[in-house]
């Protein structure tokens, strides 16, 4: 490497800082952090899709699928976090791979809505399945980590560390991937599919790759969320408003930088936590109001604040 990538350096510094902070953080803070990482991972997948010109209103499908896949394994006696998260990630990825053959033919609003339709099918299936606790869901027991079985606060500390490591790898991976030919083809497909085809590559194939990736990370996020909360239920894992929240985070973060996604997720988690604490009746009002405010006044998301700041400096 002739020069160091600024984003990779930044992510690494934050990663190391958070690893240390993990041992001193207040419990509620760590919980918010865990949820931010889980949701941020889903938003990272949406960011990749968005750069390809596609928006999904249904990624709760993969989030919920990953969460339930991991949680169901605990029902049959598996408790290792590595296995659970791997299973959640992979199963969502496989689902995305198969649905991808259909979805890659759609663009714009059709793509967005068809995703929503599929996510509502999953929601319907979960709600109707008594074995999975129907609308109440079921609890997920405390995971072990390759034989290590933490207790008390150590559970969350270990889970946070575990999540942090994987999220760091995924995020740096996505950032580097964006600079490859296949990664950059997001731009090409978004801007002009006809040209891509006439340069000799399949735009649908590009979309399919991005879609499977978004499914994988959404499944990862879901599995982490299931372990973090210790509970899965359809309304907070698979319903349509969950998908809406992911899109909200993507809008809030902007698509300028992979790191911003997690800042956006964290801000979202803060708003959510405080709104639920102090004004639960107007939570949707606050969420909708801030979404409108971002759309009107901060069209490129939080990240544009940083770049604006940098520009005025330079």
């Amino acid at each position: 490497m002739r020069y160091l990538d600024k984003t990779v350096v930044g992510l690494s510094i934050v990663f190391v800082a958070l690893v240390f902070a993990d041992f001193f953080m207040a419990e509620w803070m760590r919980f918010i952090g865990l949820q931010s990482l889980a949701r941020g991972a889903v938003a990272l997948g949406l960011l990749v899709l968005w750069r390809t010109g596609l928006v999904s209103f249904g990624h709760a499908l993969y989030f919920g699928f990953g969460a339930y896949a991991a949680a169901m394994l605990t029902l049959i006696g598996y408790h290792d976090a590595f296995l659970l998260v791997f299973a959640g990630t992979l199963s969502a990825g496989v689902l995305a791979f198969f649905l991808g053959f259909l979805l890659r033919r759609y663009r714009a609003i059709f793509f967005a809505l068809l995703n929503m339709a599929f996510s509502m099918i999953l929601y319907g299936v979960i709600v109707k399945t008594e074995e999975l606790g129907s609308t109440d869901g079921f609890s997920v027991l405390t995971p072990t980590f390759l034989g290590y079985a933490p207790e008390g606060e150590a559970v969350q500390t270990t889970l946070f560390l575990f999540t942090l490591c994987f999220t760091y790898i995924i995020t740096v991976g996505v950032h580097l991937y964006m600079k490859t030919t296949l990664g950059s083809m997001s731009m090409a497909v978004r801007e002009n599919e006809i040209r891509v085809e006439y340069l000799g590559y399949s735009a649908e194939k590009v979309i399919h790759v991005k879609y499977v990736f978004s499914g994988l990370v959404a499944g990862f996020g879901g599995a982490i969320m299931a372990l973090a909360v210790g509970q899965v239920d359809p309304d907070s894992m698979a319903n349509w408003n969950v998908s809406g929240e992911f899109v909200f985070i993507t809008i809030l973060s902007g698509i300028g930088n992979v790191g911003a996604t997690f800042i956006g997720a964290f801000v979202f988690e803060l708003i959510r936590t405080y709104a639920f604490e102090y004004a639960p009746q107007i939570w949707q009002f606050i969420l909708g109001g801030s979404l409108l405010a971002i759309i009107m006044f901060l069209p490129d998301g939080i990240w544009s604040l940083f770049s604006r700041f940098r520009k005025s400096e330079g």
Binding site: V55, F57, A108, I109, A112, G244, V247, I251, Q281, I282, W283, Q284, F285, L287, G288, G289, L291, L292, I295, P299
Partner: peptide, 24 residues
């Protein structure tokens, strides 16, 4: 003049706001 997804999201945001207004 904005992207069509953005307009959908704006109407989605407005929908959320109105849901709570309704209950108020």
């Amino acid at each position: 003049h904005r992207d069509e997804h953005i307009i959908v999201l704006a109407t989605f945001a407005m929908f959320l706001v109105l849901e709570d207004v309704l209950m108020m």
